Lab assay of single mutants.
Amino acid sequence: MDSLVVLVLCLSCLLLLSLWRQSSGRGKLPPGPTPLPVIGNILQIGIKDISKSLTNLSKVYGPVFTLYFGLKPIVVLHGYEAVKEALIDLGEEFSGRGIFPLAERANRGFGIVFSNGKKWKEIRRFSLMTLRNFGMGKRSIEDRVQEEARCLVEELRKTKASPCDPTFILGCAPCNVICSIIFHKRFDYKDQQFLNLMEKLNENIKILSSPWIQICNNFSPIIDYFPGTHNKLLKNVAFMKSYILEKVKEHQESMDMNNPQDFIDCFLMKMEKEKHNQPSEFTIESLENTAVDLFGAGTETTSTTLRYALLLLLKHPEVTAKVQEEIERVIGRNRSPCMQDRSHMPYTDAVVHEVQRYIDLLPTSLPHAVTCDIKFRNYLIPKGTTILISLTSVLHDNKEFPNPEMFDPHHFLDEGGNFKKSKYFMPFSAGKRICVGEALAGMELFLFLTSILQNFNLKSLVDPKNLDTTPVVNGFASVPPFYQLCFIPV
């Protein structure tokens, strides 16, 4: 009986604490739906499609509103004006990374994606500088992407125009580009180590996009005490870190300090320079996690976009025909596509942009946080508050993009057929937390897609009208449904 009384008292205290925290903070924060004790607004949000729920709530509470995930307040920004004001106009104040408990377990605050403060700034600055020195957006990395595009075309030829699921092959190409940047090595598509790495990356994007992960991140005790797919994700990350550590040891034994070959060499050189400046942010643990982040951000996002792009091109054969006509006119058949071609191919450029806009790969991006107490639109948001960005509300804005739910390359073309930029184009987020590999991803999408369409016609196994382009999961990332196609050599 005594234990029951204690339990009831504990629960009562928890409920009172929950109510007090919510009521004391709500006077400062933007308005929002009334949260339930302990669980907050979790029942009012469709976990399978958070973005749709945010759109519905914005119609009631406006472009800036507050939700509670458990006891934790989260300020939501919906629509271009609110997102721009926060991420661009007040970029420094909104540059923090929001709480992501599962990532905390995986990387302990290291790396480039989930770190904060001085650690994040130094690692991000170093990573950007190193990638630029190796030619991100310049010639040397373009050579690597072109080489991988040629290998991709050869792998597709091996399908002999038979029906195939493109998931694996389209994942190999961007993964190999990242391998060449980090390890100075590309792998054969049949290499077992490479296959294991690909498998872990593919599993992780599916797990991260599941409703279960949303629950884990908002009720963090689940991570330590409950079984579930989150444990598989943590094991996959541990596998990748151990693999990278092996490569780091190989580099330490063979590195030429006067001739760095890749990202690992550059990081080890930085560690050597910083060894007298303790404590340094440049450690082996930081290198492991930064490399894992580059793999995660640079492989599955690009391969998922490529997979979605081919599905949309199957669905819209008239678009595919126009792209192939432009390829034939500008590039021809006797040389590989290059980035200089893009400025002469406005329709193809528009298609690449429209694919990214339409699929809305990361509907709410990753959570941000404010780095200080900030007054925002007459609300006071306390330091450390998590900020949720609705990228969907920007990419699918119906004023900027008429009929935003329709796939239409003319969203990025003017009346004369010239490519038209849009400030609403934010597939990689915006501001200080914009994806480090934005330029690389854009290069890969253009070169891989043009190389495929230069060499193959795409054949659907069903009537294009019957192809479903609805994402199968739409949590962290929008993942396309399973499909097969035939690559018919031109």
Results as ranks from 00 to 15, higher is better:
2 D>T: 09
2 D>L: 14
2 D>G: 10
5 V>D: 14
10 C>I: 14
15 L>T: 13
16 L>N: 00
17 L>G: 10
21 R>F: 14
21 R>Y: 10
21 R>Q: 12
22 Q>N: 14
23 S>R: 09
23 S>V: 08
25 G>P: 15
35 P>W: 02
36 L>R: 05
36 L>E: 02
37 P>H: 02
38 V>P: 15
39 I>S: 02
39 I>H: 01
40 G>R: 01
45 I>M: 12
49 D>K: 06
51 S>R: 15
51 S>D: 09
52 K>R: 13
52 K>N: 15
54 L>F: 10
57 L>D: 00
64 V>S: 03
65 F>C: 06
70 G>N: 06
71 L>P: 15
71 L>N: 14
75 V>L: 04
75 V>G: 00
78 H>L: 08
79 G>S: 05
80 Y>G: 04
81 E>R: 12
83 V>P: 01
83 V>C: 08
83 V>I: 14
84 K>R: 12
84 K>N: 13
87 L>Q: 06
89 D>C: 08
91 G>M: 05
95 S>T: 06
95 S>G: 12
96 G>N: 10
98 G>C: 13
102 L>M: 09
106 A>D: 09
110 F>Y: 10
111 G>T: 03
111 G>V: 02
114 F>E: 14
118 K>G: 11
119 K>A: 10
122 E>V: 13
122 E>F: 09
124 R>G: 03
124 R>S: 06
126 F>C: 05
128 L>C: 12
129 M>L: 11
130 T>P: 05
131 L>V: 11
133 N>P: 14
133 N>T: 07
136 M>E: 10
136 M>P: 11
137 G>L: 12
138 K>W: 13
138 K>T: 10
139 R>H: 09
139 R>K: 10
141 I>T: 04
143 D>F: 07
153 V>K: 03
154 E>N: 10
156 L>M: 03
157 R>G: 06
163 P>Q: 05
166 P>L: 00
167 T>L: 03
168 F>L: 15
168 F>T: 10
171 G>P: 02
172 C>F: 03
175 C>T: 11
177 V>N: 00
177 V>K: 00
180 S>L: 04
182 I>E: 01
186 R>V: 03
190 K>C: 06
194 F>S: 02
194 F>C: 03
195 L>S: 09
196 N>V: 14
200 K>G: 07
207 I>C: 06
209 S>E: 10
210 S>E: 06
213 I>R: 11
214 Q>A: 09
215 I>P: 03
216 C>L: 15
217 N>G: 12
220 S>H: 07
222 I>P: 06
231 N>W: 08
235 K>D: 14
235 K>Y: 06
241 K>E: 09
248 V>S: 04
251 H>C: 07
252 Q>W: 09
256 D>C: 11
257 M>R: 14
258 N>V: 11
260 P>Y: 07
264 I>C: 08
267 F>N: 05
268 L>C: 06
269 M>D: 11
269 M>C: 14
276 H>G: 12
276 H>C: 12
276 H>W: 10
278 Q>K: 15
281 E>N: 12
282 F>G: 03
283 T>Y: 05
285 E>Q: 07
286 S>V: 11
300 E>Q: 15
301 T>H: 09
302 T>E: 03
302 T>S: 13
305 T>R: 04
305 T>N: 03
306 L>I: 10
306 L>G: 00
307 R>G: 03
308 Y>E: 05
308 Y>R: 00
309 A>E: 01
312 L>S: 02
314 L>R: 00
317 P>L: 05
319 V>T: 07
323 V>P: 01
324 Q>K: 11
330 V>T: 11
330 V>M: 08
330 V>F: 06
332 G>E: 04
333 R>M: 09
335 R>A: 06
338 C>K: 14
340 Q>N: 10
341 D>A: 03
341 D>R: 00
348 T>Y: 01
348 T>N: 01
357 R>N: 01
359 I>Q: 05
362 L>P: 05
364 T>Q: 15
364 T>E: 02
368 H>E: 04
368 H>S: 11
371 T>F: 04
373 D>S: 06
376 F>K: 01
376 F>R: 01
377 R>K: 15
383 K>C: 08
385 T>C: 08
387 I>F: 06
389 I>T: 10
392 T>H: 10
392 T>L: 04
396 H>V: 05
396 H>S: 09
399 K>V: 14
399 K>N: 14
401 F>D: 08
406 M>Q: 11
409 P>F: 01
414 D>P: 02
422 S>K: 05
422 S>G: 05
424 Y>P: 04
424 Y>C: 11
425 F>E: 07
432 K>V: 11
432 K>F: 12
436 V>A: 14
436 V>Y: 06
437 G>V: 12
439 A>G: 15
439 A>L: 06
449 L>K: 01
450 T>D: 00
452 I>G: 02
454 Q>V: 03
455 N>A: 10
459 K>R: 14
468 D>Q: 15
469 T>L: 11
469 T>C: 08
469 T>R: 03
470 T>S: 12
470 T>Q: 14
475 G>F: 10
478 S>F: 06
479 V>Q: 09
480 P>E: 02
482 F>H: 08
482 F>R: 14
484 Q>V: 03
